[in-house]
Amino acid sequence: MDKTTFDKYLDDRYNKQLDYYRQASAKNQKRYKLFQWILIVLSALTPVVAALNGIKSGAINISPLINVNLLVVIISSIVAILTTGLKTFNYQELWVKYRSTYEKLKPEIHYYNFNIGPYAATGVDKESVFVTRVEAILDTEHSQWPPVKSLQNTQDQSGDPDSSKK
């Protein structure tokens, strides 16, 4: 593989994939942690709010001022929605999967640059080895996706919801 083609591969494929997996991992980590913190706070708040039912503060009865039962139901519903959202959208699993792929891709350029591992063999086409190894990492990650998710990704990339029917 010539140097120009390899440099184009580095720019157009390797570096873009590296950025994609880094950003996707960070996005899913942020979503997961946000959902978890909201769940923690609301779960801890629910019994406190429930305990307010019937408490009298001096001459003021709190219950008529705030419909405590309704507030407990609303908080509990939000907790249920967030819990279901975490399970449905798999933010933690996606975060780990994307981060894992990123961590596998990241050192490959260093192995290439410093002639480590398969790049150290004499008479080897280092650029072809690099491309083969990077594509194997990407193929492994892509093959882990269920067919429905792959279809959704194809539609998202094309912007055409009917693109799979063509």
Rank of each mutant, 00 (worst) to 15 (best):
Q23R: 14
G123E: 02
N69R: 15
P47T: 09
E127R: 14
V41H: 01
T46M: 01
L34M: 14
P118D: 15
H110S: 14
A50Q: 05
L86I: 12
G117N: 13
Y14L: 04
F35T: 12
R99W: 04
D12F: 02
N61C: 00
K87Y: 13
I55T: 08
Y102Q: 08
I40V: 15
A26E: 10
V41D: 06
A121N: 11
Y20V: 04
S57L: 06
R13H: 11
V48A: 09
A80H: 03
K104R: 12
L10W: 09
Y14S: 03
E135N: 11
A59T: 08
Y102A: 01
V41I: 14
Q29P: 00
K97Q: 10
N61L: 00
D19K: 13
H110Y: 14
L70R: 15
N53G: 01
K97C: 02
Y102W: 11
K104Y: 09
Y111K: 12
Q17P: 01
L18G: 08
Y119N: 12
I116F: 05
T140C: 02
N28R: 03
L10A: 05
N69E: 09
F130D: 00
Y9G: 06
P64D: 00
A51T: 07
E103W: 02
I60L: 04
V131A: 00
E135A: 02
I116L: 15
F130Q: 02
H110F: 14
S128L: 09
Q23T: 15
A59L: 01
I81Q: 04
H142R: 07
S100K: 09
T46Y: 00
L82E: 03
Y98S: 02
K97G: 04
N115L: 06
R13V: 15
D12R: 13
Y21G: 05
L94T: 13
R99Y: 08
L138K: 10
N115W: 03
V96R: 10
Y98D: 02
N113P: 00
T140V: 02
I116A: 12
Y119A: 10
E108R: 08
T84N: 12
A24M: 11
L39K: 13
E127L: 01
I116H: 11
A50W: 01
